[in-house]
Write a protein that binds this DNA or RNA. Structure first.
Lengths: 355, 355
DNA sequence: AACTGACGATAAATCGATTTCCCAATCTTG
DNA sequence: CAAGATTGGGAAATCGATTTATCGTCAGTT
């Protein structure tokens, strides 16, 4: 709580009065306009110092009809990935004198739209949108309709209006397929969220195409849950209960990796002896557990940096066709990948691959 | 990117013109002031609908000199805990028509101060501060000096100016001590970050007092790193290298749990057979790994809810002494707690090593 | 008919900055 | 010394909403 009376901060007029000049002059001094007598400038600085004056960004933005606010919309803030994305975006926005206002859509497209409306109310200079679904969701449509400036990241491939920046899912998944094929896996279960349209499709195709090229006999089962994680858990449970025994599971998203692990645990299967596991998306804990979990690491920092770079270009008026950027991932092979049970005989071919 | 010309959104005057009334009337209609002829109200609504008008919160806040913005400052956004805190705060602020502006201090007090200054520039209505250190850091001092309205959460106990809301670390740690003592552990290593003053002290004391009460012979070693995690890792490594063999490790914070696990792994120790582990702070992955990791679950939602409750009370002008709220934790006993391998006595009963 | 209220609506001030003129004082120059 | 060119500074408009103070109308009173 505060003390009794809020002292109310000094305005530009208070500074002007104290310095014995007009508000216009104060403004000029604050912006380094050179047509001010050195003596007056000095008095202004002195008054600013004495009063502890700092301009109100709201009033300033209002007058200039240009808001130094960037909006960021992510599906959730609880994950390392998006938390890290937002942290980077925050720093990058700050560096240019902008304030980042982050909001989480909670994996709901209605909330996403709601937040976007609010951002538009705020007349933000630009929006970084990590859509719940993909670039074809309602949020993108709204941004188009409102003529907003923005870029899309993560669960996107390319868009006809907005710049997009995402991980190169296709190549990364191909890497995963190569690793599994090399180790002799011939029956792999891939799990994912169907809702995450283009992104999941890319990860799936990257895996499938490479796997089939390397081993046409490889059996690839796919379980996709449309919207949320729990149905997927049920589907996996059913799948295993039917007696399916793939030798490896490739999860296309972080929560799926958790679900896979917990299903292994329910059945008392040990990883990688009984089954191998690879996840798209790395997390800090994955390298300290037994076994450590192999994962595709998304280039968080580069995605954030590139997204901001594109966004500010557009804010600064750059025109031209939207760009679709794919940032390369790194694939960390860890202990959760082993040889398939029945092929233990072959020598291990261990490789660390960077994409 | 946007289309060519930003259409520029309609202002209240555009609505007024279209409805054939004055801006003042439009404002009244929008706020449900009853002294407007029904017919005029109808025309205003119609104009609003046609133009898609929505008030600019900046202009509105400026005029009313009351900003509907809440600032939130957390040490980091990458963790489940703070990500979740911010998500809850966001919803709660929204529910009252406020916008949450979250910022992360990156565990740096300088950045914390910097962010606070920026929030004060924005004249936010209130601040939820999760300080890097504790309630006695510079941020609290700044808030006091500026007469800001705010509450402090998480790494705090109680403050002479601001309401505080945090987990009941003392009781939770006592419970941990009880569990370990019950299982016969008589040599425990406690690790934490000394920087997190009062909070760590509470967790430590809660543990120590109960442990000593239950088993005066229990040996409790404490490793605290002042500021960051890496020195702590080194200290733990040294500690084990010296031949110390506690039968359990109690980590007072999440990252410490990770570090402990990775040190176990380096040495090929298995948990819980070789050593038990308990962490303050739960995470989703802890229940799906082998072994699952015992943890103290902080009542995130209640902390957020209570913090916002207090904050809005203060914003609404409530006076009175600051309240210090402690929310009870849950302790999840999982597989990482076992029986001590063998009871070994050695060295001093209590030793504190600071790095 | 003149007066009083009640009711609705609006012009104008305001919030705190920025920016556009325009004016006054000083300086050049013929 | 007068006319023109600078230079520095300020009054006022503006951004988009809210709020105050005022004004006009019409109904009801006396």
């Amino acid at each position: 709580m505060a003390k009794g009376a809020q002292p109310k901060r000094p305005s530009i007029h208070d500074v002007a009065r104290r310095a014995g000049v007009s508000a216009a002059t104060v403004s000029k001094v604050m912006h380094g306009v050179p047509t001010v007598k050195a003596e007056n400038a000095e008095r202004v600085f002195e008054a600013v110092r004495q009063l502890g004056y700092r301009a109100d960004p709201l009033a300033s933005d209002l007058r200039r009809s240009k808001r130094r606010i960037i909006g960021a919309i992510v599906p959730e803030l609880e994950s390392e990935f998006f938390g890290s994305i937002v942290t980077h975006l925050e720093r990058l926005a700050e560096r240019r004198g902008y304030t980042l206002v982050a909001a989480s859509s909670g994996e709901s497209e209605e909330r996403e739209a709601e937040i976007l409306r609010r951002m538009e109310d705020w007349r933000v200079a630009g929006v970084v949108l990590a859509p719940v679904r993909d670039e074809h969701g309602p949020a993108g449509e709204m941004m188009r309709a409102q003529g907003m400036t923005g870029v899309m990241i993560d669960r996107v491939l390319s868009d006809k209006t907005f710049d997009t920046v995402s991980a190169d899912s296709l190549s990364a998944s191909a890497e995963v397929a190569r690793e599994l094929a090399d180790r002799g896996h011939r029956h792999v279960l891939v799990i994912g969220l169907g809702e995450q349209g283009a992104c999941v499709r890319a990860r799936l195709e990257g895996f499938r195409r490479t796997a089939e090229a390397l081993d046409p006999q490889m059996r690839i089962d796919v379980l996709l849950s449309e919207s949320s994680v729990e149905p997927l858990r049920g589907a996996i449970r059913d799948y295993f209960s039917r007696g399916e025994r793939p030798t490896a599971v490739f999860s296309l998203f972080l929560k799926g990796t958790l679900v896979a692990l917990s299903e292994f645990r329910r059945r008392g299967w040990h990883c990688p002896d009984d089954i191998s596991l690879i996840g798209f998306d790395d997390a800090e804990w994955m390298q300290v557990t037994w076994p450590s979990i192999a994962a595709v690491v998304q280039p968080v920092e580069r995605i954030a940096a590139h997204a901001m770079e594109r966004l500010f270009r557009r804010i600064d008026g750059e025109t031209g066709p939207p760009m679709a950027r794919l940032e390369p991932c790194r694939f960390l092979v860890r202990e959760s990948i082993g040889m398939p049970r029945q092929e233990r005989r072959q020598g291990p071919k261990i490789s660390v691959v960077e994409t």
